[in-house]
Write a protein that binds this DNA or RNA. Structure first.
Length: 806
RNA sequence: GGAUUCUUAGCUCAGUUGGUUAGAGCACCUGCCUUACAAGCAGGGGGUCACAGGUUCGAGUCCUGUAGAGUCCACCA
């Protein structure tokens, strides 16, 4: 028997253990078709927030749905524990920088710390009812992952898509590493726009340059004006004298200079921004790199050497002012590019780095993108936009410690890279040696290991490869190429989705998945994104689970449209709580009336039973259609609507028949039993996608025809009750009107109706006559008269039996 | 500046391919302790579907424009 009250905490723990002990979600290849899900390995940087719960739940629901449709679900969980996020977490916890701790010790701390958090993550996701097979979960720094990641790198090297080159790259002097374009975040900052006077060497003519970065004056290699700028084009070909720094540089022409921006005269440095790099390449300008890798001016710069960038900015500006070179200083708010991991402004650096070619195959990436179904469809645009606007090859070198090592050494003499062999993988060049004993190019016998590690995205972009055990024996390549579904939030389309496509294209020439499902964000308030810096997340996932139960939190996560942002709302949680409570109560009611029930073939359904069976069938078809489009929220909404109709209308009608077989007959009662038995079973299946716990509890108590409701299969009904469905709706409408009359008269709904006269059309008259006992019992009608009219229907007379009230 | 989504009841949101009087929950008001459920049931009030045009027999739904908001990207000398 179901308990009087549902104890969520107790039952949820019970079923978690049961699922685990019985391996309900374990993956084993068999004859069934595989549905595979490439779910994001969460970054192990300390906290799972409510946004994770939201998007992971939506993915999870798809896993459950596909399982119920007979697919063999391959749904491994992973943790993205390598790279900068983990390092920053450790640095924060230790209160020390990585280089202060030492490479080896620091790596150890990283492993320990990520292990600790992964346990917490796993517990939280388990508690949410994530139906993953924890036996096949992966980490992005385990030996097997490192092996696959290095194998991927070597394959790209062999195919010529990956190269080592000295080139300007984005540099973070907080994290002391190069970074990729995708890791940039634009931020608005306040600064000053400084108008500085320069002079031509030839005739001493003054002209003004506006700059936000006077500290770059020592790095100026030339000055540009637009050849069409009538005010300034006479300067072209002359020489500019840089004030304070006392250096002379040429004045050159380039049409990229905007005449109306600033003063129309631009200083070009190596490197202040992207345009500087372009000009540097285009005009073969000299390199005057003046920053150290930790954000200071290099010692060789007179007067300012050794200063931090911002100190130098202030000092140079003061010196310019003192020399009378500053015309004016304007307050300015503008956007700067910062590193998303630390929020610090990025600079540019020149060093040898490993790059993956992303610029030469844009068309192919677009083509692959077109082969994938994006849900919702418009997210495809974001992908295309990004690919079209890429300006850099993908720099995958990071001058850090905790990550996948490059399987590379360099010849000490000639610098020739020596790659590890397949047999050596996984390899750590710092402790391992190359198999060759001399450089194939210059025969030198000494090698220098690569100390850089790979960018975290370089590894997370191979999750499909990790899943299919790329290049290993007994791999899953045949069943996971491509995978069925990738899911993630919209913010990482440009990174995770894009890079995964890049890798898949280079390795196999094919798409990595058939479908991509993009979830929205959880907003703190309407129009306000949850951000760590603001600390505006209003709820901790664990608190929400403890307060409301995992099923209820899942309800919240399962509402709303795919790809649409959602606000965390107590109202929605309350609504879920009520729904779950209702499922419990109606199940209790149905259980009560099934004690003597035996399931057998039966076709002689009562009219109103046909109505609800037909309605269910219609609802479920729509429900399944939504889910096939990955619209979990719309599916839930649709199901919920039916469910309340089922409870408030159908159950209220059928209960009389279930209670009083002596009055209604054994067979009509059986018809009702069979109907509630059938519909509840299917409702539980449908709801189990969203509420895996409570539905399991009820299923195990009432049905138990399998080890778990989650291993059953949804088989749509195949009735043809369209006539009953239409007239049944009219009957419900009349019932509703009569109830309304009772309420208006302030009497209880069981107050008898002495006399009811209806005008109804032929179909409805037949329908009511076919269900006359149910109809009269539901409304407590003593005397009913029906007058047949052409169309429509109305209540002509309504009389209550007040004597019988109470 | 480019792309994209959104604007529906006081609040949070639904509204399949255009089809009669626009829906739900919360809040508010009224009635009902009815043998599953008062965390319930029955009912009620409340909307120029952002605004302006257009297509159509018919527009919340399609098209164009305007305003506002979110997100992504770019610019940032």
């Amino acid at each position: 028997m179901l308990d009087k009250k549902y104890n969520a905490e107790e039952k949820e723990n019970k079923w978690l253990n049961y699922w685990k002990e019985n391996g309900i979600y374990n993956f084993k290849p068999d004859q069934r078709e595989v549905f595979s899900i490439d779910t994001p390995p969460p970054t192990v940087n300390g906290k799972i927030h409510i946004g994770h719960i939201f998007s992971y739940s939506q993915t999870e629901m798809i896993a459950r749905y596909k399982r119920l449709r007979g697919f063999n679900i391959f749904y491994p969980f992973g943790f993205d524990d390598n790279g900068l996020p983990s390092e920053r977490l450790v640095e924060k916890e230790q209160g020390k920088k990585a280089h202060e701790i030492g490479r080896e010790e620091f790596s150890k701390l990283c492993y320990e710390t990520t292990d600790k958090y992964e346990e917490e993550f796993q517990e939280l996701f388990s508690k949410m009812g994530v139906s993953t097979d924890w036996n096949i979960h992966y980490k992005t720094v385990s030996p097997s992952t490192i092996k696959i990641s290095q194998r991927s790198f070597l394959d790209l090297i062999n195919k010529g898509h990956c190269y080592h080159k000295e080139s300007p790259a984005l540099w973070c002097n907080e994290c002391l590493t190069s970074i990729a374009q995708a890791e940039l975040e634009t931020k608005t900052i306040k600064t000053t726009f400084n108008y500085v006077n320069f002079k031509t060497v030839e005739d001493g003519e003054e002209f003004t340059i506006a700059t936000t970065r006077p500290e770059l004056l020592p790095a100026i290699v030339c000055v540009f004006v637009n050849p069409n700028d009538e005010k300034h084009n006479h300067l072209i070909g002359k020489t500019a004298h840089i004030p304070v720094i006392d250096v002379e540089v040429p004045i050159m022409a380039d049409e990229k200079v905007a005449i109306d921006k600033g003063t129309g005269v631009v200083m070009c440095c190596t490197f202040g921004d992207q345009t500087d790099i372009e000009w540097w390449k285009k005009y073969n300008l000299p390199l005057k790199y003046i920053f150290t890798d930790n954000g200071r001016i290099i010692e060789s710069v007179a007067n300012y050497g050794g200063m931090k960038i911002k100190e130098a900015r202030k000092q140079i500006l003061e010196d310019l002012q003192a020399g009378g070179f500053v015309v004016k200083i304007e307050e300015l708010e503008h956007e700067v590019q910062t590193h998303e991991r630390c929020g610090k402004e990025v600079e540019y650096s020149v060093m040898k780095q490993w790059f993956i070619d992303t610029m030469n195959h844009k068309d192919d990436f677009i083509k692959i993108g077109n082969e994938i179904k994006w849900h919702p469809d418009h997210m495809h645009n974001r992908y295309n936009e990004w690919v079209e606007n890429i300006m850099w090859d993908w720099c995958i070198s990071r001058q850090r410690y905790f990550g996948v090592p490059f399987p590379v050494w360099y010849c000490k003499d000639c610098g020739e890279p020596i790659f590890a062999t397949e047999e050596q993988l996984p390899v750590n060049p710092l402790t391992d040696k190359p198999v060759v004993d001399k450089c194939p190019k210059c025969s030198c016998t000494e090698f220098v290991p690569e100390t850089d590690v790979m960018d975290t995205w370089a590894t997370s972009s191979v999750t499909p490869l990790i899943n299919m055990k790329y290049g290993e024996k007994n791999n899953y390549e045949s069943i996971l190429k491509p995978m069925s579904l990738r899911t993630n939030a919209s913010e990482i389309i440009r990174t995770w989705d894009f890079y995964t496509i890049v890798k898949s294209f280079y390795h196999f020439g094919t798409r990595p998945w058939d479908n991509v499902m993009i979830s929205g964000f959880v907003m703190a308030n309407k129009g306000e994104k949850i951000s760590k810096s603001k600390g505006n997340s209003k709820v901790e996932p664990m608190d929400a689970i403890n307060q409301y139960s995992a099923d209820v939190v899942r309800y919240w996560a399962g509402t709303g449209r795919l790809g649409t942002d959602i606000v965390f709302s107590d109202e929605t949680l309350l609504r879920g709580k009520k729904l779950i409570n209702k499922i419990w109560n109606v199940s209790k009611f149905i259980e009560m009336h099934l004690v003597d029930y035996e399931d057998k073939e039966f076709n002689n359904y009562e009219y109103i039973d046909k109505w609800i069976l037909g309605k269910f069938q219609e609802m479920e078809n729509g429900f399944l259609k939504y889910l096939d489009e990955y619209e979990v929220g719309l599916a839930l909404n649709h199901l919920e609507k039916f469910f309340w109709n089922f409870c408030d209308n159908y159950i209220e009608i059928v209960k009389h028949r279930l209670y009083r077989p002596e009055e209604f007959g054994i067979e009509p009662r059986y018809s009702g039993q069979k109907t509630v038995y059938t519909i509840l079973y299917k409702l539980l299946q449908d709801f189990s996608i969203f509420f895996p716990f409570i539905t399991e509890e009820i299923y195990q108590e009432l049905y138990k025809d399998n080890k778990s409701i989650h291993l059953t299969e949804i088989k749509p009904l195949e009735f043809n009750f369209s006539k009953e469905m239409e007239s049944g709706d009219s009957i419900i409408d009349i019932i509703s009107q009569v109830r309304g009359q009772k309420t208006i008269n302030s009497v209880s709904l069981k107050t008898p109706v002495k006399d009811l006269k209806l005008s109804v059309n032929k179909d409805l008259k037949d329908a009511i006559e076919s269900s006359i006992k149910d109809f009269s019992a539901t409304l407590f009608i003593q005397n009913l008269e029906m007058n047949e009219v052409k169309n429509d229907y109305s209540i002509d007379n309504f009389e209550l039996d007040f004597d019988l009230k109470d």
